[in-house]
Design a protein around this nucleic acid. Structure first.
Lengths: 248, 248
DNA sequence: AGTAAATGGTTTAATGGCAATACCATTCTG
DNA sequence: CAGAATGGTATTGCCATTAAACCATTTACT
């Protein structure tokens, strides 16, 4: 009965530094900067973000502390995104979500709903060229799985889901899903398969799901697209819980 | 094909003040503070938001400039939320969305999708007590419409939709919808019916929609819940376009 | 080899958002 | 009329942030 949600939560300190950390983690989580990749130079980030270089450095030092990046000097130096395993190590999940595993589950559910809504909407709005893009990404994924190429599979997987979101023709949906993804990814990157031991079964399940989802979108069967996407997104849940060493 | 969305948008200046403006607008848009209502005192806001009173005042002055609130002094003074018509006047919509009407449409579509997803999810997850809450809000709404009580109808409408979102049992969905609502509401409050001349027909349409939505949720007919909610949310689109004096 | 260029790392001083505090002006309550 | 609660104003100081140098390291180019 009482629906009094207080929006008036405290404002964080060091707001600019925090905002930069936020943006960089978002970009990393979104796959704009894959592990091993170099971030833009400090001077460039300062200009892009319209802040001083010192502030950028403060933000970068936070990311270094969290083990998300490391820096190298020299002409070809820079800030490099750490490998997934390095980030996942050291209990990053616990550091972010603490003991509140319920919130983690809730976040994953929200992400799953987001992807499912995207697939459902894509089923209604997709054009022929959308279908071409999705099916192209699926072919890539299948090829990478056959080749036992986890890196390629990861890239193709991102492309596939991205193509579906594009097919929903709703840019804000894209933003929302990304911002939700970030909440998980900053501690346990979604694109985590590269380090998973049980790649094989996961990839096979993902491949089946992808094919079913594409079929649903092609036939404009939105219930199918929704349901399979929803369950599919929960793969990440299993992976993360596996990381935590808990079976539930 | 190219899916390179740059997350690295500039960091705003005066971040704390901006954050407070943001939170207050969200709260207002969410209906936590209805028109005519008094906001918490400056000193109280400062404590709640964990900022200095000067910062709160800076934020309030922004809201005053935008015509969202006005202040009165004295013991019973404070910052009062302006009436809808006052906010809607003066081309506030144009000021925010500029000439980019496409983005406005896109935002409304995203909101509609959000409400529709909430209704669909509610259809799957609702408990008996959820149904009681929704149906209670609907009764209130019907009563207010019969009484020709626009204020009451507005309040009951908010309650109805809120109850549906609650029934989806996904708190983040609630956050997301609110943050989307805010983008519109800060310039053209969604709960705008109080000032609409064509209250009657709108209320009747809303009442019919509400009943159909409740029926869909009761019968767990998620397609029905989704579709009617989606179209229902577009009522706001018609209202805003009407405000703009454009027929499309 | 040697110079230039591009990067991260460091220091410094100036700026300005913000916090803390006190006090004034206004208006209602007792 | 006194007190209390509010918005409005002014003062002071802190510190996050900026800007501008300069240093250290590594690579590219001549």
């Amino acid at each position: 009965m009482p629906h009094t949600d207080n929006q008036l939560t405290p404002v964080p300190d060091n707001p600019k530094t925090a905002a930069i950390v936020d943006r960089l983690l978002t970009a990393i989580a979104a796959g704009d900067f894959l592990p091993g990749t170099r971030l833009p130079s400090e001077r460039q980030l300062a200009e892009t973000l319209a802040v001083g270089r010192s502030t950028v450095r403060n933000a970068l030092s936070v990311l270094i502390d969290r083990g998300c990046i490391e820096t190298r000097r020299g002409r070809t130096g820079g800030a490099f995104v750490m490998d997934v395993s390095s980030i996942a190590a050291g209990g990053a999940v616990e550091r972010v979500f603490g003991s509140d595993l319920a919130q983690l589950d809730e976040t994953i559910d929200a992400i799953a709903l987001g992807y499912a809504l995207a697939a459902q909407t894509a089923a209604m709005r997709r054009t022929e060229s959308d279908l071409t893009a999705i099916s192209g990404a699926l072919d890539e994924f299948r090829l990478a799985v056959d080749r036992n190429d986890p890196r390629g599979a990861q890239a193709a997987d991102g492309k596939f889901h991205h193509a579906i979101i594009d097919a929903a023709h709703q840019p804000m949906l894209h933003e929302i899903i990304q911002s939700l993804d970030r909440r998980i990814s900053l501690s346990a990157p979604l694109h985590i398969w590269g380090s998973a031991a049980q790649q094989g079964p996961m990839h096979q399940r993902a491949l089946d799901d992808h094919e079913t989802i594409l079929g649903g979108i092609q036939r404009q069967d939105r219930a199918m697209a929704f349901d399979v996407s929803y369950e599919h997104a929960k793969i990440d849940r299993d992976l993360i819980l596996g990381l935590l060493g808990r079976d539930q």
